[in-house]
Design a protein around this nucleic acid. Structure first.
Length: 876
RNA sequence: GGGCGGUUAGCUCAGCUGGUUCAGAGCACCUCGUUUACACCGAGGGGGUCGGGGGUUCGAGUCCCUCACCGCCCA
């Protein structure tokens, strides 16, 4: 058998993935086992895999694979999100490239294009996840607009409407003038931007040369002003309240009103009130019964109300309008100013607050159990710091604007039959709608032609908020949802805590009476090494598929996990994947070594090997204990690191070196079997992190039968009690080995040259480790002596004194200097210990155990100092 | 403006209820090494006094106050 010296992922990964699929290892059906369920955060249907998906899905796969091996009925449901606004924007863009305007198409024609796009791109990202090794149950793949899911979304709308929780109302919404739709607050990003602050004066009616000056960042809205507002306590303007001011250019008389909403310090202390274009002004308008004049069209151009400016872009108008003000003598001054501007998350367009008729879901009552669940840890957040922002948001939750002026999505199931505010019905189907409309109007002759369905669609999140339920068709059937719901863990990004996580918890309580998952693991953002967010425009985002080609999927998975504790951003560097690849290679080579040993059953097990086997057994048990603890608290990078060190440090560097038979000689059967057993156990522990490599090696280490023998479904190793004594003993012995290696290193003594080792044993000296030490240090033997050894290197471990007699021509001065340095350190240490012990308050105040420890430290230090002083005298 | 989190080796991070040499890990770095699994390697090593200041305590990265800086969320 000739196994290549380097592991080549390209030869194994596709092979094993196909094998697992064929074996049906990822497919789940309800049975009598405990379920372990994860629903994927559905990526946008037209998206391509980026580093964020890599991180997120690697984590999910680790959790799912581990659960599967633990004997749970693991079910990871994949799928995609129709992503209403993002997808529609892409389709519009693509049509534009072909010279087609959305406005030239009918709704049906447009949707045809959108579906075409969806079918073309819909599968890509899921195929990419397979490369990563994601063990999703692909038979369960869902899409938020597939038939059953669509129906579920419509049903929720109708049901909430029947309950009176969904209502229609005129509200100030965040308007995206590019996408031509309303957005929820969560879809608006606020950034600081440089602008100007314009000071504009308005003439007061009936007063000679009396003016009132306001400061505004948005002069183009002046034509929509319907009042001037001052603070009721403001002495400067008190006498003007109740008078009228003249809006420049349009020469409209508006009242001067007073309201304590006004900030006395800002600008001039006077506010122009434009209820149509500012949320606060809108509220002021409501309160004071002001007129609303809309001067801006849906597409961001000026409306007919803007007179000569009609049709001009709002930003162009912002430049031009002040010029006219200046000519008329109304512009007092212009200052540079920095203020917060809201932009659309999707189109980056500056949001225009706009009044419109939208659908809303009343949130206050609905969200109460969802708030409680997170506060009392029924749903646990990892890391828990996110609980605070969750609470803050939930305590101030606003009604959810769920309508969007788009075509791609779930069309709102409302049909209008007249122009009156209440002239509509909400129903699951056209037939139901017609029936209801007939009843409502009392007109039995009404036909579908008399009904007009609402053009709008629902917010994307209004479909994904029922994801953990409806992927199992849980709104319509009980069989599967009863088994899989609630799911176990959700892995997602903190950015969508409000968009998605909070709302899933809300709908979970509403529909199932319990939260949809027990744990939420928040990943961080994958950044480049300079700490910048990865983005297309910066071109700093590596192509995950290329990365996997270069380092193997296992290498990339390890790379993603190495430095990303929950909630922390991940500064990504190819180096991390390289480390992952190197680790894979290390495991591969450990396997090559072990596999290559010929066994001689007649050979007795050497003592050193017996010691090593006992130690490795205990050490791997201890590591499993640590691993379980790390998983229990979702510290996955720590879990990986524990495994990494167990394999590389303990198994490869210490264990294998201590059982290696001399060159060309066979190994005894007992040692070989034990070595393979631990190795296979480690393969199991590694499998969730590195599924491909481990499955490959697994099939090399033993004869494997059918699919049920795959590592993918092998039983997770059982924990057992272990010998802590040998762990401590070996730690001491390792120090001895290192000390001798140091003597060789410092004095240029080759490993091949045998050394003598003498020891004056102290209390609890583990003599049984001597063969192990001798094996690793190439000493001819370990001799017990009762007196100090002259002419030797020396070191102390615990109370045991070791000596290595000098060979030919060693550097006595260097040795003396080293001993001197050591001595000074010990003296310093003794001094600090005695400092504590001579402190009356310490001795009386500290617990007995602590004081006792200090006394022991003192004794040890004294012993060491005595040895070192002797040594120094010896070397003089 | 409100809220939250952070500041520990060159980098990324551990460090739970204050007390064993607790100052740790991985990577990077330096020295040595062509020993028959692996140079995608091995052995060894240097490096931080825990952002600044103050306090509580016998004792503080670990608790409290304060300042500075950074990040995130919300308005």
């Amino acid at each position: 058998m000739n196994i290549p010296a380097q592991y080549d992922p390209s030869l194994t990964e596709d092979k094993w993935y196909a094998h697992w699929l064929e074996a049906g290892h990822f497919h789940s059906v309800p049975d009598d086992r405990e379920p372990y369920t994860v629903v994927i955060p559905p990526p946008n249907v037209t998206g391509v895999l980026h580093m964020g998906h890599m991180l997120n899905n690697t984590i999910q796969d680790v959790l799912v694979r581990r659960a599967r091996m633990q004997g749970k009925n693991a079910c990871w449901v994949p799928g995609t999100d129709h992503a209403s606004i993002a997808t529609e924007a892409k389709v519009v863009h693509r049509l534009r490239d072909k010279g087609i305007k959305k406005s030239d198409l009918s709704r049906d024609e447009f949707l045809e294009h959108a579906w075409e796009w969806t079918h073309e791109h819909g599968g890509i990202i899921l195929e990419q996840l397979k490369k990563l090794g994601a063990s999703c149950d692909w038979n369960r793949t869902r899409f938020t607009m597939d038939e059953g899911y669509y129906k579920g979304v419509i049903d929720t709308f109708v049901e909430f409407h029947e309950k009176g929780l969904i209502y229609r109302g005129v509200r100030m919404v965040n308007w995206d003038p590019v996408a031509l739709t309303a957005l929820s607050d969560e879809e608006v990003m606020h950034t600081e931007e440089h602008g100007k602050l314009y000071y504009v004066r308005y003439a007061i009616v009936g007063e000679e040369d009396r003016w009132i000056t306001v400061a505004t960042t948005r002069p183009e809205t002046i034509m929509g002003d319907t009042a001037i507002c001052v603070h009721p306590d403001d002495e400067r303007y008190k006498d003007l309240v109740g008078k009228k001011a003249i809006v420049p250019v349009v020469n409209r008389e508006v009242p001067v009103i007073a309201d304590d909403y006004i900030d006395l310090e800002f600008g001039t202390g006077c506010l122009k009130v434009t209820p149509a274009h500012d949320i606060n002004d809108y509220e002021l308008g409501q309160k004071h019964g002001l007129e609303t004049i809309d001067t801006i069209n849906a597409d961001g151009t000026m409306s007919a109300e803007a007179g000569a400016y009609e049709g001009m872009d709002r930003f162009e108008c912002r430049k031009k309008f002040p010029e006219e003000l200046d000519r008329l003598g109304n512009l007092v001054k212009v200052e540079d100013y920095t203020n917060k501007v809201g932009r659309s998350e999707r189109t980056n367009a500056v949001i225009e607050p706009r009044l419109s008729l939208q659908w809303f879901l009343a949130m206050e009552e609905l969200s109460k159990p969802a708030l409680e669940a997170v506060i009392n840890d029924t749903v646990q957040f990892h890391p828990p710091k996110f609980k605070n922002s969750y609470r803050h948001w939930m305590e101030n939750v606003k009604d959810w604007c769920i309508s969007r002026q788009l075509w791609w999505g779930h069309q709102i199931p409302a049909w209008f039959f007249g122009e009156g505010e209440e002239d509509y019905v909400v129903a699951r189907t056209e037939a139901e709608a017609l029936e209801q409309a007939r009843a409502k109007t009392g007109n039995a002759g009404l036909t579908m032609d008399d009904l007009r369905q609402d053009e709008d669609v629902m917010d994307t999140w209004f479909s994904s908020w029922i994801w953990p339920i409806q992927v199992f068709d849980g709104l319509h059937k009980e069989d599967e949802v009863a088994y899989y719901y609630p799911t176990n863990d959700l892995v997602t990004a903190p950015e969508i805590m409000f968009f998605w996580v909070a709302r899933m918890i809300i709908s979970g309580y509403h529909y199932r009476g319990e939260a949809p998952f027990k744990n939420v693991y928040y990943t961080g953002i994958v950044r480049d090494k300079k700490g910048r967010k990865m983005s297309k425009s910066l071109g700093n985002s590596p192509d995950p598929i290329e990365l996997m080609k270069q380092y193997g999927a296992d290498g990339v998975r390890v790379g993603m996990l190495l430095t990303s504790p929950a909630g922390n951003d991940l500064p990504f560097d190819d180096k991390l994947c390289e480390q992952g690849r190197n680790f894979a290679n290390k495991i591969w080579n450990a396997f090559r070594l072990v596999q290559g040993w010929e066994v001689d059953e007649a050979k007795a097990q050497p003592e050193a090997a017996a010691t090593a086997v006992a130690w490795m057994e205990a050490r791997s048990q201890q590591a499993m204990e640590e691993l379980d603890a790390a998983f229990a608290s979702f510290r996955l990078s720590e879990a990986l690191m524990t495994t990494y060190r167990l394999v590389w440090e303990e198994y490869c560097s210490w264990y294998l070196e201590s059982i290696k038979p001399p060159f060309g000689e066979p190994i005894d059967g007992a040692t070989k079997r034990a070595t393979l057993e631990v190795f296979e156990r480690m393969l199991k522990l590694l499998h969730p992190f590195m599924p491909f490599l481990t499955e490959e090696v697994w099939h090399w280490t033993s004869e494997r039968g059918g699919h049920e023998d795959d590592l993918c479904v092998a039983a997770w190793p059982e924990r057992a009690a272990y010998d802590k004594g040998i762990l401590a003993d070996i730690e001491m012995a390792k120090e001895v080995v290192t000390a001798i290696r140091n003597i060789r290193n410092d004095n240029g003594i080759p490993n091949k040259e045998k050394l003598e080792l003498k020891v004056q044993p102290g209390d609890g000296y583990p003599a049984h480790l001597e063969p192990w030490i001798a094996h690793l240090t190439n000493v001819s033997g370990i001799e017990h002596v009762t007196e100090k050894v002259k002419g030797a290197f020396g070191f102390v471990q615990g109370t045991h004194r070791f000596s290595v007699p000098f060979g030919e021509g060693f550097d006595i001065d260097a040795e003396r200097a080293k001993v001197q340095k050591d001595l000074e350190y010990q003296q310093g240490f003794l001094h600090s210990v005695r400092g504590k012990l001579s402190n009356e308050k310490f001795v009386s105040g500290a617990p007995e155990q602590v004081v006792e420890n200090e006394r022991k430290k003192e004794a040890d230090a004294l012993a060491k100092i005595a040895v070192l002083e002797e040594k120094l005298a010896d070397l003089a």
